[in-house]
Simulated assay, not measured.
Amino acid sequence: MQLSSKLNNPATRNNIKSTTIYSLSPRFYATNLILLAIFGLLFLLWSRHESLDIALSQRWFDPLTQRFPLQHNRWLDLINHRLVKDAIIAGAVLLLLSGLRQRNGRRVLVALLFGLGPLVVGLLKAHSAHSCPWDLALFGGKAASFVLLDAVPANSGPGQCFPGGHASSGFALMALFFLWWPEHPRRALLALLIGMLTGLLMGYGQVMRGAHFFSHNLWAGWWVWLSQVLIFAGVSFWMNTMRKRDGSH
C-alpha cells in the first residue's frame, strides 16, 4: 500500500504507474466524511424548510391549468431523461469491458461504482413515502406533502420520489474521480465537478417537469458520493489486505 502510494503521484512516469486498487489515505476519507456530514446537515435543513423547494417548483407550475406545462416536454424527456442517461450507462459498460479485457481492477471497480451509487438511491426511492410534486395537492394532485423526518400522513400518495433517481445517473460520473486520483489530481477533480454539475442539471430538468423537488436531487448526489467513497474504501482495503497476506506466504 505504501509502495503504491509512492508510485502513484503526478510526478510518476506513466510506464511505472500502478493500476491496482490501492488504499487512499485516512486523511482523504476523514475529509470526505466530515464534508458529507456538513452537507448532510445543510440538506436536512433545506428539506425541513420546504419553502425553497416549493419556490423553485412553482416557477414551472401553471396555477391556471393546475399542471406543469413541461411535464411531457419532448426535449426534456428525450434528451435529459433518456439520451443523457443512456450515454452514461453506455460509457460505464465500455469502461467495465475495457477493465475486464485489460485485467485492470481499478477500471472494473470504477465502472461498478457507476451502477452501485444509483442502485443505493433506487433502493431508498423505492421505499420512500414522499410523492413527486406533480402528485401533490399543492400542485394539482391529491397527495399530501410532508417534510423529511416528519410522520407520514395517511394520504401521502404513491410515494417513491425521494431521493431523485434520475439525477443519480448524472452524479454517477463522480466515480471517475477514483479512476484518476492521485496520478492525475486535476483530471480527477474536474471529473468530480462534472459529475456534480451533470447530476444537478439532470435533476433540475426533472424539477422543470414536476417530477422532483430540488432537494431530492441534492440528496441523490449525497447518497451517490457516500456510497462511492465507502465502497471504494472497503474494496481497496480488502484487496490490499489480501495482497499483503499472499505476499507473506
Score class of each variant (00 low, 15 high):
Trp181Ala: 12
Trp181Asn: 05
Trp181Val: 05
Pro182Ala: 03
Pro182Phe: 02
Pro182Ser: 08
Glu183Cys: 15
Glu183Leu: 07
Glu183Ser: 14
Glu183Gly: 12
Glu183Arg: 14
His184Gly: 05
His184Pro: 07
His184Met: 06
His184Gln: 14
Pro185Leu: 11
Pro185Ser: 12
Pro185Gly: 12
Arg186Val: 14
Arg186Asn: 10
Arg187Ile: 12
Arg187Thr: 14
Arg187His: 12
Leu189Pro: 05
Leu189Glu: 14
Leu189Tyr: 13
Leu190Pro: 09
Leu190Met: 13
Ala191Cys: 15
Ala191Tyr: 04
Leu192Pro: 11
Leu193Val: 15
Leu193Cys: 13
Ile194Asp: 01
Ile194Gly: 08
Gly195Lys: 09
Gly195Pro: 03
Leu197Met: 15
Leu197Ala: 15
Leu197His: 09
Thr198Tyr: 06
Thr198Gly: 11
Thr198Glu: 12
Gly199Trp: 08
Gly199Ile: 08
Gly199Val: 08
Leu200Cys: 02
Leu200His: 03
Leu200Ala: 14
Leu200Pro: 00
Met202Pro: 01
Gly203Ser: 04
Gly203Leu: 06
Tyr204Val: 11
Tyr204Glu: 11
Gly205Thr: 08
Gly205Val: 05
Gly205Met: 04
Gly205Tyr: 00
Gln206Gly: 04
Gln206Asn: 13
Gln206Cys: 06
Met208Phe: 06
Met208Tyr: 08
Arg209Asn: 07
Arg209Pro: 06
Arg209Ile: 05
Arg209Cys: 05
Ala211Val: 02
Ala211Phe: 00
His212Phe: 02
Phe214Ala: 11
Phe214Ser: 06
Ser215Pro: 03
Ser215Ile: 04
Ser215Glu: 03
Ser215Lys: 05
Ser215Val: 11
His216Thr: 03
Asn217Phe: 00
Leu218Tyr: 00
Leu218Asp: 02
Trp219Leu: 02
Trp219Asn: 00
Trp219Cys: 00
Trp219Phe: 11
Ala220Asn: 03
Gly221Cys: 08
Gly221His: 10
Gly221Trp: 07
Trp222Ala: 10
Trp222His: 14
Trp222Glu: 09
Trp222Tyr: 15
Trp223Lys: 07
Val224Leu: 04
Val224Ile: 07
Leu226Ser: 07
Ser227Gly: 03
Gln228Cys: 05
Leu230Ile: 02
Ile231Asp: 01
Ile231Val: 14
Phe232Pro: 04
Ala233Met: 12
